[in-house]
């Protein structure tokens, strides 16, 4: 379980608390600048909170497969070289899974990052993230700026390759509609606060999630 307790970071996050239970898929949603990415960075260990705690052992690289929104790959890496690099850095990198993901996403293994399209770089990025057999997968905006077919393919890839008996997934997203069917929970942020956490199926018993979100924004 990821247990975020009352974390604050400068003016970007104020007293944020939420939990992601084992075996669940949760999305942090909220407007631009609400603090979604900052929370992920704090969980991944890229940023340290000024106050509050995140209950995880210190070396998070062993526990968390983190995928920032911007690709950070060497442009001269081929897809295959990228896989080799990940394999050399992470003992839990599952090469068989990576190869299956490359097939699923139809990635050309010899092509260099510099020559891949935005959609292909994104798929390569998600492939190396999902290929790690570690308990927590953390993806920042996996669908941002992609066309509907690529989005659909990525959603299918997540369902296909995640093992919810061993893993949990936390993402941030603006594309709620495209990814709603695979979510257990949404965590809503606004102005550096967590203003709600709710199960998607529970929300849908009353109204569409989008409408719920609007009502929430009006009342908070």
């Amino acid at each position: 379980m990821i247990d975020v307790k009352n974390i604050s970071i400068k003016k970007r996050l104020r007293n944020c608390s939420f939990t992601v239970e084992r075996g669940k898929i949760a999305a942090i949603i909220g407007e631009n600048g609400s603090g979604k990415t900052t929370v992920l960075e704090a969980i991944a260990g890229v940023l340290s909170p000024d106050r509050g705690s995140i209950e995880l052992p210190h070396d998070r690289s062993e526990l968390i497969s983190y995928c920032p929104e911007q690709a950070y790959f060497y442009h001269y890496f081929s897809v295959e070289a990228l896989f080799d690099f990940y394999q050399s850095q992470f003992h839990d990198f599952n090469r068989g899974k990576a190869e299956a993901l490359a097939d699923f996403f139809q990635l050309d293994r010899q092509e260099k990052m510099a020559y891949l399209s935005k959609g292909q770089v994104n798929r390569a990025k998600i492939a190396v993230t999902l290929a790690r057999d570690c308990p927590y997968l953390v993806l920042d905006e996996p669908l941002a700026g992609l066309d509907p077919i690529v989005k659909q393919k990525i959603v299918q890839g997540i369902i296909h390759f995640i093992d919810l008996e061993q893993q949990s997934l936390l993402i941030t997203t603006h594309e709620l509609l495209e990814i709603e069917t695979i979510l257990d929970e949404v965590i809503v942020m606004r102005d550096g606060h967590v203003i709600a956490q709710e199960e998607v199926e529970t929300i849908r018993e009353g109204m569409p999630v989008q409408e719920w979100l609007q009502q929430l924004y009006e009342t908070v």
Binding site: I25, Q152, V155, Q156, I159, T181, I182, L183, D184, E201
Partner: peptide, 14 residues
């Protein structure tokens, strides 16, 4: 079924 419908496996379990 989760893959065929793009639905969370926990939901299909239910």
């Amino acid at each position: 079924l989760a893959i065929a419908t793009s639905v969370n496996p926990n939901t299909i379990q239910r």
